[in-house]
Simulated scan of single mutants.
Amino acid sequence: MNEQLNYGDDYKYIPATSIFSGVGQAVTEDIYAYTIQIVNICYVGNENKWSLIDAGMPKSADKIIEEAENRFGPNARPEAIVLTHGHFDHVGAIIELIQHWNVPVYAHELEIPYLTGQKKYPEPDSTVDGGLVARMSPYFPNEPIQLGSHVQPLPSDHTVPSLSGWKWIHTPGHSPGHVSFFREEDRALIAGDAFITVRQDELFKVLVQEKEITGPPRYFTTDWDLARESVFKLACLNPTIAVTGHGVPVKGQEFKNQLEKLAKNFEDMAKPDYGKYLN
Rank of each mutant, 00 (worst) to 15 (best):
V128Y: 07
T171N: 05
S126V: 09
Y139G: 12
I196N: 04
V160R: 05
L203P: 00
P124M: 09
N142I: 15
T171W: 03
F182L: 04
Q146N: 10
I213N: 01
G192R: 03
P176W: 08
H170P: 02
V208K: 07
V208Y: 04
P138T: 09
R228L: 09
V151P: 00
F182M: 04
D223T: 05
K167S: 14
F195H: 00
V206A: 00
V206N: 02
S149A: 14
K167E: 15
R187E: 04
P124I: 07
E143G: 08
S149G: 10
P216D: 06
G192W: 04
H178T: 05
G215K: 07
F181L: 10
M136T: 07
P144W: 07
E123H: 03
K167W: 01
R135D: 10
R187G: 01
H174E: 13
H158S: 13
E202W: 01
K167H: 08
N142H: 14
R218P: 04
P176T: 04
P141Q: 09
R228Y: 09
Q152S: 12
P144G: 02
T127W: 12
V206G: 00
D157G: 12
D223P: 10
S156K: 15
F140K: 13
P217K: 02
F220P: 02
L203Y: 11
G215A: 13
K205D: 03
D223G: 09
G173E: 03
V133M: 08
I196M: 04
R183M: 05
G177N: 04
G177P: 00
G131D: 13
P153R: 11
I196A: 03
L132R: 08
P124R: 03
R228K: 13
E185W: 08
T127D: 13
V208Q: 06
D193H: 03
I213P: 02
K167Y: 01
I169F: 07
Q146I: 14
Q200R: 06
Q200I: 05
R218I: 00
H170A: 07
D157C: 14
T127H: 12
R199C: 01
E210G: 02
